[in-house]
Amino acid sequence: MTLLKTRGRSPLQAAGSGELEKATEKRNRRTYLALLIPGLLGLLVSFVFPLAYMVRMSFNKGAPDGVIEETFTFDTYLQPLTDPYYWKVTLDTFQMGVTVGLLCVLVSYPVALFLARSQSKYRGLLLAIAIAPLLTSAVVRTYGWMVILGTNGLINSSLTGMGLIDTPLKLTNNITGVTIGLVEIFMPYAILAMISGFGRLSPQLEEAAGSLGASKAKIFARVTLPLSLPGILTAFLLVFVLSISTFITPRLLGGGSVQVLATEIYDQTTGLLNWPFAAALSVILLVLFGLIIAVYQRLTRKIGG
């Protein structure tokens, strides 16, 4: 306002020249920034500080019996980066994330597509049923899968009972079991992510494609699938991130024979009390996340553009 006064113009004239608008915009921006402060403070305390502490920890030196030697060394990174065992664990983790992500997207897509397009009065109920598994914890659901997949579990006893197999299939304590469990556990997330990503889909577009001569298969390939790609990508990313950071299911369904970064970090933290090493593994996991998110953003920009 001082600016306006020194120039000796009424605010109305100034508004005409856009100066008042600029002043208002400036004030608004300050208000927005002020409104961000509580959230930023919260993030700082709960996220940035611990993360910085963890990164710092990864440069310390771990000694037996949980003694942490304050220093600055890259030794903690040397071991995972040179030891083939940790390369394998990292690769296994990545592979599990991709497999679970792909399978989860594959089984969730039809469900999500149906729910997004349904005009039934039961749509709300069906949606609730689809995400109801979130009401029970992943631990409980993992135990459920152990009962179903175990050597004397539902699947094996039915199959042997019907005489289809002689020896029970090995479905637990290996990566197969972990994958099956994770896919089911993350389905609700994938379904929700897809439905929210299907914004551009509309039955009218499919009708338009049909009226222009496209068969059902062509409609799906040229209209439905391309328009649902953003939802599919988001769902894949979410499930990938969730599955490479999950600990409970690989530990319980893997029965100790499935080693991924999350279980390794857990063992280092609570078993061997080697916090610097656990911190270094965590940083590696974070870098893995970062890479995937960068690829994801590039892809979504391509699709959206």
Binding site: R200, S202, Q204, L205, E207, A208, A209, V223, L227, I303
Partner: peptide, 9 residues
Amino acid sequence: FQSYALFPH
């Protein structure tokens, strides 16, 4: 169509 239904992609 009333909403034109142009393919957004």
